[in-house]
Design a protein around this nucleic acid. Sequence first.
DNA 1: ACATTTACAATTGGATCCAGTATCCTAAAT
DNA 2: ATTTAGGATACTGGATCCAATTGTAAATGT
Lengths: 221, 221
Amino acid sequence: MSMKQGLRIDNRDTLHLKVCNVIREAIIRGDFKPGERLKQSDMAEQLGVSRMPVREAFRKLESEGLIILEPHKGAIVKSIQVEDVAEIYALRAELERIAVEQSADLLTNDDTQQLSYLADQMETAEDVDDFVQYNIDFHKLLIKRCNWERLNTFITTLWNGLPQQTPHLLEGQTEMSNKEHRAIINAIQNKEKGKAGKLVAEHIKRTGEKLINSLEKEGQS
Amino acid sequence: MSMKQGLRIDNRDTLHLKVCNVIREAIIRGDFKPGERLKQSDMAEQLGVSRMPVREAFRKLESEGLIILEPHKGAIVKSIQVEDVAEIYALRAELERIAVEQSADLLTNDDTQQLSYLADQMETAEDVDDFVQYNIDFHKLLIKRCNWERLNTFITTLWNGLPQQTPHLLEGQTEMSNKEHRAIINAIQNKEKGKAGKLVAEHIKRTGEKLINSLEKEGQS
DNA sequence: ACATTTACAATTGGATCCAGTATCCTAAAT
DNA sequence: ATTTAGGATACTGGATCCAATTGTAAATGT
């Protein structure tokens, strides 16, 4: 079994999986607006496949909470209220705390170096979009070594739960986040997993509250 | 639009939903053993439907974590290790704590009366199976008024995660549980939702540890 | 005798076809 | 004029059919 170089067949995923991924990305990117109706036939035609893989993709996306499927009616993109944001951040705080506690001891030196690197990048990031991407990588890396499968899927579901187009709302609070990131890294390097978890939870809670504040202000205007 | 009397059509669920429910019950009941292979065609024939609704049901069951679908291979019933039990109870403890905090204020008088009733039933239950059923109802009722949808589905997933055939392992620790149930009810009646949540979490953690102990002892024998 | 290859059977994945339901529009009736 | 019944349309849900992949077992070669 040599598998020397990259002469691999493009992608051995099944079709409905590819379809699912494409649609998921589109929804998270915001290409399909909340409340928008998604038709199997249109989607199938656009992607150049039959309706079947689209149907299966829709089922999966429903289970991930990205769309709602009503019998005989079809799929609509789920829309997000402020209360959803509150829920997502509250749950993220608790679940990622647990995940970090599981993961912390198993992080390699490479991992912690990578964490520092990402913190550097965030501190010197030019625009907010970059910051957001590094931030995502940072949080994903923190829990990378957590072996609890259910926990991981729950967290991913929450991450996918809100379209990633809110970065501008985080403006002007990056300094605080950067401080907290450093504190988290410290705790991990000192093998204080309990503390690391606690810091992560507080960090998420705080950013959640900030985000909700911004949303409510924006709603009023 | 009066809708006076109950002349309703039996069941307007779509077929794949019915199929899904039937299979789920069977797995949870333990009719299909962990590791067992489930064939679409067999299942379809047994249920008297085509393969199509079975396929869709399988997808849903996979998303609930009850089976594993490997491409071009098929479905196998997920098997449970001790570590899974640890995960499930740890997550249940935290998530149900949050859910109770959300739910507590919204519980009606009827609800709390029903809680007391269930506590009574558990205290006087003859055999363990009855106790287990009342216990399930009790915990479900505690979080009944929680409006966080994602949280509810996570908890349901965890509940379905382990086949319900472990009651005999809980033997001889019902007294402790009964005490804890009463304490929880008290906290709720006193509108101390934080305390109620904490008690629930501790209660779940404790039963989880007990269960794991029993499993490990059983494993050795 | 053992390893490797090849052909075949079994099963899932994908496409197409048909049926049933929901929605929208029009026309009729009060 | 407004409401309601009827029907046309369009979409989803379910059945069937075909293709692709995997595993097994036989066959061939070393």
